[in-house]
Amino acid sequence: MTPEKNNKTIDTILLIIFVAFLLGINIFLFSGKYLHFDTQGVGIVVAAFLTLAMYSFLYKDNPLFKIAEHIFVGIGMGMGVVLTWLQVIKPLLYKPLIRHAIFDNTPGTPDYILIVPMILGIFMFARLYGKTSWLSRWSFAFIVGGGAGIGIPVIINSLILKQLEPSLQPIFVDWVVTWQSINILLILVGTISVLIYFFFSLPHKGTIGGISRIGIWFLMISFGATFGYTVMGRMSLIIQRIQFLLTDWLHIIK
């Protein structure tokens, strides 16, 4: 038997054991009245199966993980379509415009101006056909151009000025050095050195090089802090899933 075939056999055996284990446990949970055979009980079993199927990827890419992954993708897309219809197309286009065009007895007056975004939206489909794909540029220009215009004053006011204001606080009050003064000075040094690090019009040598190196240290602290928070966020997700498995599914933790 080749090693590849041998591995496949081991994987198949593990898969069967895993499914049998799940089946056995769930039969025990339902027969022991730990779980009720209702929407909640079945939901917990399905969620537990999918959770374990997803974690099985840690062993290796396998059919259970792939099934769970593909279901997730399909459901995600379906949810996107449902939400788009219910929250966008129906209230913003169907009710004020299309309904009036289809039915004579619709109350109210149609909002004809909505024909413009509808046409621009339909132009997006032109992307799928090579010869007419240029039509979609009109829609993109509408979104990108307007977005750029909205963004400029908002960025200047809400981000640049609002960020600069606290950076330019007085360091000393009555020439007394406090812990606060040191912090303000450090923030100022950090902000300027990081900005200089990202300033590539001058070679990073000599004084500029030294300042940009300080900027790198500040960036490293920030990246480290972000990394730490990300790890803790993911850890809390693991804890949440394990808690779900041990509490809601297996009832080991009360």
């Binding site: 450090l186 990081v194 960036l219």
Partner: peptide, 26 residues
């Protein structure tokens, strides 16, 4: 302090970049 300083530097750079890109688009 240090994280805020670095974030502020990155944010300011990002904002200036965004404004220049937005103007280039317009």
């Amino acid at each position: 302090v240090p994280n805020l300083a670095a974030k502020r530097g990155v944010l300011l750079g990002m904002c200036l970049g965004s404004i220049s890109t937005a103007l280039r688009i317009i």
